[in-house]
């Protein structure tokens, strides 16, 4: 017979999960500030104040259509991170003109929903986004951009994305 979790155990478990989540985010932040990949920058000071929301600066890769451009990516981590993917979207003035990026900043990238894995990290997501931008051949919005932007939820994770290749 299993006894149900007592309220104290439950609280204890919740705290442990919270502690593990914060520890992992701190480790990621440390790694990213200490040894950032080219074209990815974080402002550690501002993130330490609120670990659950990060803003990452991204530079368009050299020799790509986005060379010289600067973008801001926002990450929001839920309490189930890293077992659940973070919310990731472009914010700010400059939203890249790309067939997989909607004008409201939402990104259609499979690792951000279905193909998420807890071994991925902020750093690997940033690299995926940079490489997605770099592989672009023609700067344009997704064909259903205006419809999507009008109808979508604020949270890109609520969209049922249809991934088709490439």
């Amino acid at each position: 017979m299993n006894s149900p979790l007592s309220p104290i155990d439950f609280e204890d478990k919740r705290l442990k999960i919270k502690f593990k989540l914060e520890k992992r985010l701190q480790k990621e932040l440390q790694a990213l500030t200490k040894d950032p990949p080219t074209g990815v920058k974080v402002d550690a000071e501002s993130i330490y104040r609120n670990l659950s929301e990060w803003i990452v600066d991204i530079d368009g890769a050299p020799e790509s259509l986005y060379e010289g451009e600067k973008f801001k990516l926002m990450f929001k981590f839920g309490s189930r991170y890293p077992f659940d993917s973070p919310q990731v979207m472009f914010i700010g003035e400059n939203i890249p003109l790309h067939p997989h990026v909607y004008s409201n900043g939402h990104i259609c990238l499979s690792i951000l929903t279905d193909d998420w894995s807890p071994a991925l990290s902020v750093q690997s997501v940033c690299l995926s986004v940079v490489s997605m931008l770099s592989s672009c051949k023609e700067k344009k919005r997704p064909p259903d951009n205006s419809f999507y932007v009008k109808t979508c939820s604020k949270n890109p994770k609520k969209t049922r994305w249809w991934y088709h290749g490439k």
């Binding site: 990213l32 193909d115 071994a119």
Partner: peptide, 17 residues
Amino acid sequence: MSSDTPTSPGPTEGATG
């Protein structure tokens, strides 16, 4: 409107830092 990025073992491992 999408890109499907398979995560190969090599880069991912490196990227997790």
